[in-house]
Simulated assay, not measured.
Amino acid sequence: MNYEGKVYRPWIEANSLLIQVTLGCSHNTCTFCDMFSDKRFRVRKVEDIFADIEQARKYYPYVPSIFLIDGNVMVLKTATLLKVLNKIKETFPECKKISLYSSFNDLKRKSVEDLKLLKEAGLDMAYIGLESGDRETLERIEKGMTPEEAVEGMANAKAAGIRVLASFIFGMGGKERSKEHIEETVKLLNILQPEEIAPMALAIQPNTKLEQQVESGEFVRATPLQILHEEKYLLENMNFETVYWGDHGNNIAPMRGYFPDLKASFLNRINHEIETNPITKQKVHNTYAW
């Protein structure tokens, strides 16, 4: 396999075969992210992607799931992505799940007809970084997306039958906008109703614009208590069924399961942490870089 640069995949895809289709991220300006700072975005040659797929077949006798990397693979032309999906299904007929990174804008730019073709070709799921539903927070982190664009993209995915896992970040609004950030995020999530969600606590990545803003005092990090209250608000106010992947390593109270089935259990856990965890007395939640 010819992986180039740093390689990332969701923790949920730990057991999936990774096929590198794009290099980097076509947006790559988010202030909090350094995942693809070592690469300039480009699409790999189809013949190189095919060679990796064939090479992987020689190594792995059974591959139940495949995850396409790097960032927002959905930005590819539909015809190109269809070639890749068809090659995967031909080479790994046992594969039951194919997923990729996307953005809501990538979904918005594609027609429902094109997305249906991708679904029929084997694409099951898109992982999307929502980060926040608060318009001002989205602008501050230079996400390049509005809440309205997220709604349009999600509508296209639902119409095509492609599952979406939306990730977002506790503390992304900082200490100042913690309330606005979580209230608007939950409001937007209740409109989007993604099939799965992955909330995680903010980690300050080295050499990012956000790190500079923290050092200068322009961005003041939310306290651990604020982060816990953000998760409590989320659990109290979500009104749709989803898979809750709240077990990221940076979360204060890692939890995973079906929502709202486990709502009472999750809330009991959060309330317990708020009442008893010494971290609530600290000014900063120390997380690790990706």
Rank of each mutant, 00 (worst) to 15 (best):
E149I: 01
R42T: 06
E275R: 14
G129R: 08
R269W: 04
V75S: 11
M74W: 07
P206L: 11
G161I: 04
L123F: 06
P194R: 13
F104A: 15
I182W: 06
M1W: 09
F266M: 08
S102V: 06
P278I: 13
D38S: 11
E180R: 15
H272A: 08
V63Q: 04
I53A: 13
C25P: 02
T223I: 12
Y8R: 11
V46R: 06
W290N: 08
E13V: 07
T276W: 09
A201W: 05
A159N: 13
A51P: 08
V75Q: 11
S167C: 15
V21D: 09
N2Q: 15
T80I: 13
G171T: 05
W245K: 12
P147H: 02
W245H: 15
H272M: 05
E120A: 14
Y258N: 15
C25K: 04
I98W: 09
I169V: 15
K281V: 08
E142F: 13
S216A: 09
L130T: 05
A121E: 05
T208A: 01
K263F: 07
S26W: 15
P224G: 04
L130I: 09
Q205Y: 00
V73W: 00
K283Q: 15
H285N: 10
L68F: 04
E94P: 02
V151E: 14
L100D: 09
E230T: 03
V84K: 03
V151P: 08
L210V: 05
N2G: 14
S16D: 08
N72Y: 11
F50K: 12
R40I: 14
M172H: 06
K45Y: 10
G24Q: 07
A203N: 11
F168I: 02
E236Y: 08
S265W: 00
G129K: 00
T185P: 03
I12F: 00
G246W: 04
S37L: 07
E183H: 11
H181Q: 14
P93I: 10
N277W: 11
G217V: 04
S111C: 00
A222G: 01
A289Y: 13
Q226H: 02
E54S: 01
N28M: 03
L23M: 11
N277T: 00
K143P: 05
K187T: 12
S26F: 01
I162G: 02
H285I: 10
D261Q: 08
Q193Y: 01
W290S: 02
N268Y: 09
T276D: 03
I274L: 13
I19A: 01
L188D: 09
A166H: 02
I98Q: 06
A14D: 12
Q282C: 05
M172T: 10
V243F: 15
E142H: 15
L202R: 11
L100M: 14
P194I: 04
D70Q: 04
I19T: 00
H272C: 11
Y101T: 05
D52A: 02
W11G: 15
R44H: 12
P61F: 02
E54G: 05
K89P: 09
S37C: 01
K187A: 09
T137L: 05
A198G: 05
G129F: 06
L23N: 12
K108W: 00
T91W: 07
N251V: 07
L107Y: 05
T185M: 02
D106M: 09
P199N: 06
I227L: 13
K6E: 14
E230P: 10
D48H: 08
K108V: 12
T80G: 13
R9G: 01
V46H: 10
